[in-house]
Computed example of a mutant assay.
Amino acid sequence: MSGTAEVEMTMAKLQRRISEEKKRNKLRGIARISAFTFLLLIAVGATAQSNTEATPTAQAISAPTPTLRVYTNLKQVSVLVLSSDYRRVKPLDPSGFRISLDSGPLFRPTYVRQEGDDPISLAILIDASKPYLELLPVLVRAVATLPPDFLRPQDRVSVYAMDCTLIRTIYDTGANPAALADGVKRAMAPWQIRQTRNEELKKQNKIPPPNCRAGLPLWDSMSEVLKDLDQQPGRRVLLAITDGGDDGSKTLWKDVMFHAQIRSETVFGLLSTINPPSFSGWEDKFEQICVSSGGVELQANEHTTLSRLKEFTQMVRDRYILEYPRAPNEQPGVHTIAVSYPKKRDLYITATGITVPIASEDEKESMKTIQEDPSRTPEFGNRKALPKP
């Protein structure tokens, strides 16, 4: 996670900025103030020293306020770690993680912690275009039970349904049972009306009319939801409740995968254990979207939907946040990142993509930048990511 901040302030303003930064991080539950605060504290110390060594004169008071440029220089990546059968595992020793960039040499992250109560922006996409998806009847009750134990008050939730059109019922709303129940209920309303109508027709020995075709099939709908997530803060996650099959999207599945990767958005899938036979081969595409974005497919049925939804939220909370310095020689473009845990081999590990700016010329000039310890900066390998098809 990296950005550039330009600070033009007196010592009093710097101290107030530090205090506000600490308060914000405390409220967010993010134990990662060291990098930014460390630089600000150095700036405060230098200013204080210069002010105490000499008595201010009229000329000094009227002099222009010096400019201090402070650059945050850490990247941050979310890493999902499960057992080989996609189950949660006990907390790992943080020192065991290793990172490789473009297949370069392994290095240890600067800092590792579990995600915990970091704010989440969660988008729930319900595929209501399939009459046979067994997970749908229990969704309203199941999703509404997630707050406050599994979704926190600081989390934000949006709900969508794939039907004859793509429906959005709530957007960037605080996670509370009433809002979630209402959002899912309204999203499911067209599907529920069709189900009731079809049951009545069957009782009358009449053939139900065919379902309308989804206005935006799966890849198209996922693309639209991810675009909405682009605008939201926190750790962004898409949960698609679907059978994984696409029926004629204009958007390529690889475009959905690439979008999630470069925007640091993680895709999870909740799929029915009863798979329709008409979609042979679809599993690979949907699974690759999940895996390549730092998520995983989960299987459920009408009896296990609630427990699997809770397990999903726990997986998100259990993710590891790995930090490491930005390399001074990093070049623009797409790079690969591989996270491993050599101490334990039978693990499923996948990372969410990250997007960061490269160092500017000002940052590279030693007179303007506090230089990173060369021994702690990662080294890139020669293997480049495959170009986007």
Rank of each mutant, 00 (worst) to 15 (best):
L74P: 13
A123C: 06
L101R: 06
K75H: 11
I120M: 15
K75W: 03
V77M: 02
L68C: 13
K130Y: 13
G116F: 08
L125G: 10
V77T: 05
V143Y: 03
N51L: 00
A128T: 06
R141H: 13
E53Y: 08
A60G: 13
L39F: 00
N51S: 06
L136P: 10
R69Q: 11
L27P: 07
E53V: 14
I120L: 15
R87E: 12
L133T: 04
T37P: 00
V81W: 03
I99T: 01
Q76L: 01
D127T: 12
L74C: 09
V89I: 13
L125Y: 00
E53F: 13
N73E: 01
R87M: 03
K26Q: 13
L39N: 09
S62R: 12
I126V: 15
Y111A: 03
E53A: 15
V44L: 11
L106H: 05
I120T: 15
G45A: 15
A58N: 04
R32V: 00
P56V: 08
V81N: 07
V79K: 09
A128E: 05
Q76W: 08
L27H: 06
T57D: 01
N51A: 08
S84E: 08
R108G: 01
A31S: 11
S95V: 00
Q49L: 11
T37K: 02
A48N: 12
N25I: 02
L139I: 03
P64F: 06
K26V: 07
R108S: 15
S50H: 02
L101G: 10
Y111S: 13
S62A: 13
Y132Q: 15
A31R: 09
A54E: 09
R141W: 07
T72K: 10
I30T: 14
S103Q: 12
A43M: 02
F107C: 11
Y71P: 13
S78N: 15
L125A: 09
D93I: 07
N73T: 11
K26G: 12
L125H: 00
